[in-house]
């Protein structure tokens, strides 16, 4: 999901419950995973647009990963 810059692309921080092994990196296709001390994982990266964002959210839903928060960061 590394995107070429477009007017809609934004950096996002998505927080889910539970830590994820390194093996999940490829599944997240270009986003980074950071395990936090509070037992959550932050998925970070630039997403091309709203459709890409909803695509990630749907993947999380399919994998049963409980969604805690989504933050759009300043460009």
């Amino acid at each position: 999901m590394t995107s070429s810059p477009s007017t809609d692309s934004r950096p996002y921080e998505i927080r889910i419950a539970g830590h994820l092994d390194a093996r999940w990196v490829t599944w997240f296709d270009g986003l980074t995973l950071t395990a936090e001390d509070n037992g959550t994982t932050v998925v970070r990266g630039v997403l091309a647009d709203q459709a890409a964002l909803h695509g990630v959210l749907q993947k999380l839903r399919d994998a049963g990963m409980p969604l805690i928060s989504i933050i759009q960061l300043d460009v």
């Binding site: 390194a22 999940w24 490829t26 599944w27 399919d62 049963g64």
Partner: peptide, 17 residues
């Protein structure tokens, strides 16, 4: 089961892409 399949696919992707 959908959830199980998703976990398997993630591993497949990681181990033998």
């Amino acid at each position: 089961h959908h959830l199980f399949a998703e976990m398997l696919r993630a591993r497949l992707l990681d181990e033998v892409p």
